[in-house]
């Protein structure tokens, strides 16, 4: 996997604690004292079992919910969850929430990525149309501009949302489970697209996934978030040599279940280290 030479820090978190604050009760803490950083052009995969707090971590990094404590900076500027417009200029987010709007064209949807930059009347900018068509080309959807979004396949919709994130012109793109609901060819194609975009544009990409195999192939760096809030970081190769995967995806209750998981990781490691 290629990695560009001069790396600039894009995202940094210091002593970050994530979770949910409750009024009058102690907060629910999912992970604490996280020290994270993402460099330019890096693709980072966030993996972890259900309930470990992957979505919460992504939502916190994206400024969609405030951290319990600690700070997050993007290119040196702090992220504040109440300043959505500034945040939208620093990072873009691809969500899995379904968009159910009829008669909405791909072009119209992608153009909404320019929202933080257009004036309050949403007038088109000088180079707006060019940017949008370029982004559609980058996600391999050239010629789709006038198609209706709700008539596209799930894989195509995902790529339209990625194009919307691209026109937002941010150094970091965060994707929450971009391969959920997709079949295998589409999952592979989305992951390859993320890799290519990072290499071609120098943008950093952070995605969460349950596709361990694909994530291992795509990412420069993995964040393994365990139940209990421990986060293990490293390159896929580094993590493969230890027991990090088994520890992260441990199932405490059933021996047979755990054997199957261990077998799975043995195969995964064999196929990846052999390369």
């Amino acid at each position: 996997m290629s990695k560009s030479g001069a790396n600039i820090a894009i995202l940094e978190s210091i002593d970050l604690t994530i979770g949910y604050a409750h009024q009058g009760r102690p907060p629910l803490i999912l992970a604490s004292h996280l020290r994270l950083n993402i460099e330019s052009g890096q693709v980072i995969g966030l993996l972890g079992p259900n309930g470990s707090g992957k979505s919460t971590l992504l939502r916190t990094l994206a400024g969609l919910q405030p951290p319990i404590s600690g700070s997050i900076t993007i290119q040196g500027q702090p992220i504040k969850s109440n300043q959505v417009r500034q945040t939208a200029r620093m990072l873009s987010v691809v969500l899995t929430d379904r968009i159910d709007v009829r008669n909405l064209t791909v072009y119209q949807l992608v153009s909404m990525g320019r929202y933080p930059f257009t004036d309050w009347l949403g007038r088109e900018e000088d180079h707006g149309p060019e940017r949008i068509l370029t982004a559609l080309h980058q996600v391999r959807l050239a010629g789709y501009a006038n198609r209706f979004f709700n008539e596209l396949s799930d894989g195509e919709q995902q790529r339209v949302l990625l194009a919307k994130a691209l026109v937002q012109d941010t150094a970091l793109i965060i994707l929450d489970e971009p391969t959920a609901h997709l079949d295998l060819p589409n999952r592979i194609s989305i992951m390859r697209l993320l890799r290519t975009l990072a290499d071609e544009t120098g943008k950093s990409i952070l995605f969460s996934s349950h596709d361990l195999d694909l994530a291992v192939h795509t990412a420069d760096h993995l964040w393994l978030l365990q139940n209990g809030g421990k986060l293990i970081q490293g390159s896929p190769r580094e993590l493969m040599t230890g027991n990090a995967f088994e520890d992260t995806f441990r199932i405490g209750t059933d021996d047979l279940d755990q054997d199957i998981v261990t077998d799975y990781f043995r195969t995964l490691k064999k196929s990846n280290i052999a390369k």
């Binding site: 969609l64 959505v84 417009r85 500034q86 969500l95 929430d97 909405l104 909404m112 929202y115 933080p116």
Partner: peptide, 24 residues
């Protein structure tokens, strides 16, 4: 008439609106 831009964004859903910078 002047609210057309936030209305277009809100149509996608509140989370989608927030991540493109709408103060929902």
């Amino acid at each position: 008439l002047m609210l057309k831009k936030p209305l277009n964004a809100l149509m996608l859903g509140e989370n989608h609106a927030r991540v493109i910078g709408v103060n929902v």
